[in-house]
Design a protein around this nucleic acid. Structure first.
Length: 493
RNA sequence: GGUGUCGUGGCCGAGUGGCUAGGCUCAGCUCUGCAAAAGCUGCUACAGCGGUUCGAAUCCGCUCGACACCUCCA
C-alpha cells in the first residue's frame, strides 16, 4: 500500500487558478515536465530556485510512492534573441564573440549547470533531453500543425497562425489574456515582415548565411522556434497529455501559452492537467539583472566571493532558506535572511544529531503520530514547505525537552520521530546533515575531548581560571563548548 | 497603457471569516562556579479609507505602494 492512497495531495493549478486534488492520469504514475535552462551562460540563481522547488516536488511525489518520470530539458539550440537581430540567436552570438564552436559553449555551460545542481544536492531528472537532439521530432510537429491548418510558410520560415487558432480555441487560456488586448498592446517591432500578424510566433526560422547552427528541413536550412522544443520533448517522453508541467512564472506567457496552442494544433488536445509556476527570486528587494549589476551567481553565493553577502553559505543553508518560503511566493535574498536561516538550519541539524543519544522511556508524553501527520498535511497543501519547517521545529523542541527530561518518549515513538525527521529533512527537503561538528575530523574531536576532560578536572578542583581559559581560547579558535546535563559537547563556528 | 500577483509584528516568512504559525532578534526566568548551549515565559501584527457581517487581517470597492508579464529572461 503506497502512501499516496491515504495522503491527499492538493496542487495549485495555474490553469484554473485554484488548488485541486491531484489525480494522476495513470494510477501510481506521474509524468512531470519542467522547462530547463538555456545553456549559453552560467546558470542564473533564480533559475536554481525554480529547479530547487521542483526538485522538492519531485522528491515528495516519489516519497508518496508515485513512480515519477521527471523530464527537464536542456535548451542548446539557441533562441531568437530578438527580431532586430535578423535571426541570429544567443548561442551563435556568444560563440562568435569568443571565437569557438556553438556546441563548445553548450558543453561548457551544461557542465557548469550540472556541477551547481550537484552541489545543491539535486536529484537528477529521469530524462534530460536536449533540443538539438530532437530536431526531427520538431520538424514532424511543424508538419502536423501545417497540415491541420494552423501554420503557414513564409520565405522559408514557418509561423503559427494565432488568429486562426483563436477562432475555435482560446489563446490566452493559461495567462488569462485576451487576443484583442494583445493586438492593441503589442509594440511595433522591426523584422516581422514575414508574419501575417505580430502575435504569430515562429515554428521554424530560416537561417541567415552567417548563422552557424542550422538543420535541413522541408522549408529551409534553419532552426526551430523557441516554444517548439518543449512541446516536442514533453510529448515524446510523457505522451500527448500528461500530468504536471512546471516552470518559472515568467514563462507563463508566451512560452507556456504557446505550448498549449502548439499541442492543441498538432495533437488536438491540451497537453497538461496541472500547470505549476514557481515565483521569482529577488536580490535585496529588486529583480536580479545583469545590466544593473544587481546579480549574484550561485558559485559566488557559495564561495562568499561577492559584494552582497557577509560570508559564504553552505548549499543546504540556501536550500533551507528557499524552503522557508512557499514556491509560489516571491522570495527576497538578503544577508539578514540567509544569516537567520543559517542559525535555524544548524539548530535543526543539532537536534537531529541528538536523537541517537536520547533515552527511551516507558511511556510517551507527546503525540508523535499526530505530529507526523501534520508534516504530511503541510506538504499535501500545495507543497507548503514553510509549514513543514515550522513542524520540524516543533520536533526540535520535543527532542530538547526529552533530553532535558521534561517530556518522555517510548522507544516506538522515538524511532518514529527519527524516521519522520529523516524523511522530511533529508529525503523531501533535500538537506544534507552538515553539522558544525561534522566539519571537523575524528582526530580533532578526539583532541577537543581531551581538552574537555582537562577542563572538567579543573572545574572539579575549582580552578576556574584554567577552565575558563580552556573554554575561551577554544572559542577564539572557533570551537564552542556546550555544557549539558549529560556532559560537554562542542561545535565549530 | 493592458494583464496578473501581492502589501502581515524589530527582520524574514506562513495562514486564515471567530481559535498560538515558525525562524531570527530582543527582554525576563530556570540551569551553570560564571558564561554559552538548552528549556520556559513575554513582545499579539496583518498598507490606508469605506462597505458586507453578530464578528474581517481573512470577503467586496476605492486609494496608495511593490513585483511580475505584455520584449530574451526561471
Amino acid at each position: 500500500m503506497q502512501l499516496y492512497h491515504h495522503q491527499k495531495l492538493d496542487i495549485y493549478n495555474s490553469l484554473s487558478g485554484k488548488k485541486e486534488q491531484f489525480k494522476p492520469i495513470n494510477e501510481g504514475h506521474v509524468g512531470m515536465y519542467v522547462c530547463g535552462p538555456t545553456v549559453y551562460s552560467n546558470v542564473h540563481l533564480g533559475n536554481v530556485r525554480t529547479f530547487m522547488s521542483f526538485d522538492m516536488i519531485f522528491r515528495y511525489l516519489k516519497h508518496l510512492g508515485y513512480k515519477v518520470r521527471y523530464v527537464r530539458n536542456i535548451t542548446d539550440a539557441g533562441h531568437l534573441e530578438n527580431d532586430a537581430d535578423a535571426g541570429e540567436d544567443k548561442i551563435t552570438k556568444k560563440a562568435r564573440l569568443e571565437q569557438i564552436e556553438p556546441m563548445e559553449i553548450v558543453q561548457r555551460y551544461t557542465v557548469d549547470f550540472h556541477n551547481i545542481l550537484n552541489t545543491f544536492n539535486f536529484l537528477p531528472p529521469s530524462i534530460e533531453p536536449t533540443a538539438t537532439g530532437h530536431i526531427i521530432e520538431q520538424i514532424e510537429l511543424i508538419k502536423n500543425i501545417i497540415d491541420n491548418g494552423f501554420a503557414y510558410v513564409a520565405n522559408g520560415s514557418v509561423y503559427f497562425d494565432v488568429h486562426k487558432y483563436n477562432e475555435n480555441n482560446d489563446y490566452g487560456i493559461l495567462s488569462k489574456r485576451k487576443l484583442d488586448d494583445l493586438i492593441h498592446n503589442t509594440r511595433e517591432l522591426d523584422g516581422q515582415n514575414d508574419k501575417k500578424n505580430p502575435q504569430d510566433f515562429a515554428l521554424w526560422k530560416k537561417a541567415e548565411p552567417q548563422h552557424i547552427m542550422r538543420w535541413p528541413s522541408p522549408w529551409s536550412d534553419g532552426f526551430p522556434g523557441w516554444h517548439l522544443e518543449c512541446t516536442a520533448m514533453s510529448t515524446k517522453y510523457l505522451g500527448d497529455h500528461f500530468d504536471i508541467h512546471g516552470g518559472g512564472m515568467d514563462l507563463k506567457f508566451p512560452h507556456h501559452e504557446c505550448e498549449i496552442a502548439q499541442n492543441q494544433a498538432a495533437k488536438g488536445q491540451s497537453p497538461v492537467n496541472y500547470w505549476m509556476h514557481a515565483n521569482m527570486l529577488q536580490l535585496n528587494g529588486q529583480r536580479m539583472s545583469k545590466s544593473t549589476g544587481n546579480i549574484v551567481n550561485p558559485d559566488e553565493l557559495l564561495s562568499g566571493n561577492n559584494n552582497f553577502f557577509s560570508k559564504a553559505f553552505a548549499p543546504s543553508v540556501i536550500r533551507f532558506f528557499n524552503a522557508q518560503a512557499h514556491y509560489r511566493s516571491v522570495l527576497d535574498l538578503t544577508d539578514d535572511g540567509l544569516l537567520s536561516s543559517e542559525k535555524g538550519f544548524y539548530r535543526l541539524m543539532d537536534a537531529i544529531n541528538l536523537l541517537d543519544d536520547l533515552k527511551a522511556s516507558e511511556t510517551s508524553s507527546i503525540d508523535i503520530k499526530s505530529w507526523k501527520q501534520s508534516c504530511y498535511d503541510a506538504m499535501n497543501d500545495d507543497f507548503n514547505s514553510p509549514i513543514l519547517i515550522a513542524n520540524l521545529f516543533e520536533a526540535v523542541k520535543y527532542i530538547n525537552q526529552v533530553k532535558e527530561g521534561s517530556q518522555t518518549l517510548n522507544s516506538e515513538d522515538l524511532s518514529l520521530l527519527k524516521e519522520t525527521l529523516n524523511v522530511f529533512a533529508f529525503d523531501v527537503l533535500g538537506l544534507k546533515n552538515v553539522t558544525k561538528t561534522d566539519s571537523g575530523t575524528d582526530k580533532l574531536s578526539a583532541a577537543v575531548d581531551i581538552l574537555i576532560k582537562l577542563r572538567q578536572d579543573a572545574r572539579a578542583n575549582k580552578d576556574f581560571a584554567l577552565s575558563d581559559k580552556i573554554r575561551d581560547e577554544l572559542a577564539e579558535a572557533g570551537i564552542q563548548l556546550k555544557d549539558g546535563k549529560e556532559g560537554t559537547t562542542f561545535s565549530l563556528s
